[in-house]
Amino acid sequence: MAATSTRAKNTISLKGSSAIVAEYFNYAVNNILYQRGIYPTDSFRQEQHYGLSMMVSKDQGLTAYLQTVTKQMSTWLEDGSLQRLVLVISSAIGSKEVLERWTFVVETDKAVLDGGPPPEVPKESIVKDIQAVVRQITASVTFLPLLEDPCTFDLLVYTSKDSAVPTDWEESDPRYISQGEDMKLRSFTTKVHKVDTSVSFRTRE
């Protein structure tokens, strides 16, 4: 009897895709907070992710907060209710004006949500696309206005209206930027979730 050779398909499940996207959010937020100087540079450490050297916060409070948010987002990604994540950077003094608004828009394949077969996509392809987005975020300091004042940040999560929201979460206004400019960055897809990244920023007067 002749032998046959087989190989595992590069399929990705809804749960697996949700984990990849949530992880990306965590590292993207860390990268932005470092690049934009929201926290002191010595409060970050260098780690290897996606084949890149990335800066990750050592602050225990911030790390715990981001882990809580990304864990909840994983749940919303798995049920298809997560629509977007917005990182808002605002001045910590005076009028606390919104200076930057980083937006991650999520599209979910409804066929997979409805129990369809998991799509095939090489993990290397996903990692390559995420690398490109992270590199763009890192290079953003070359075109974004300098943040001269101390700044704070907030994370806004947009979900479907019927989503279950933890009791310790609260509603927020959208925190839009008045007379800002928009810059669209690259996107990536797991073929279950597609994530588009962009940044809006307040222009120099």
Rank of each mutant, 00 (worst) to 15 (best):
R186K: 14
V86F: 03
S140W: 00
L185K: 10
A164M: 05
L66K: 04
E100A: 00
W102A: 00
S43P: 02
E170S: 12
S200F: 03
P119C: 09
G94D: 11
T189L: 08
P150R: 12
G61E: 08
T63F: 04
V199E: 04
Y65V: 01
P118F: 07
T75K: 11
S53N: 12
V21G: 04
T203I: 06
L147I: 02
K128Q: 13
V106D: 01
K15M: 06
G94H: 03
A92M: 08
V192C: 05
I130V: 14
T142Y: 11
G61W: 07
S13G: 13
T11H: 05
R204A: 09
E205A: 07
R186E: 12
V127A: 09
N31R: 03
K194G: 14
M55C: 09
E124S: 14
S140P: 02
I32E: 01
S43V: 09
E205Q: 10
F201I: 07
M73E: 15
P122Q: 08
V112Q: 02
E170N: 06
A8F: 14
T152V: 07
L146D: 06
K128P: 00
Q46A: 12
R7K: 12
G94C: 03
A132W: 01
I20E: 13
Q131K: 14
H49Y: 15
L33R: 07
R202I: 02
G94A: 11
K123P: 02
K58N: 14
C151Y: 00
V192Q: 00
T68I: 04
F104I: 02
V141M: 06
V106S: 00
D109M: 04
A19E: 08
S178G: 06
L52S: 08
M55L: 11
A111G: 06
T159R: 13
L52E: 15
F104E: 04
T142V: 04
R45E: 11
L82S: 05
R101M: 01
L87N: 00
D59G: 02
V98R: 00
I126H: 05
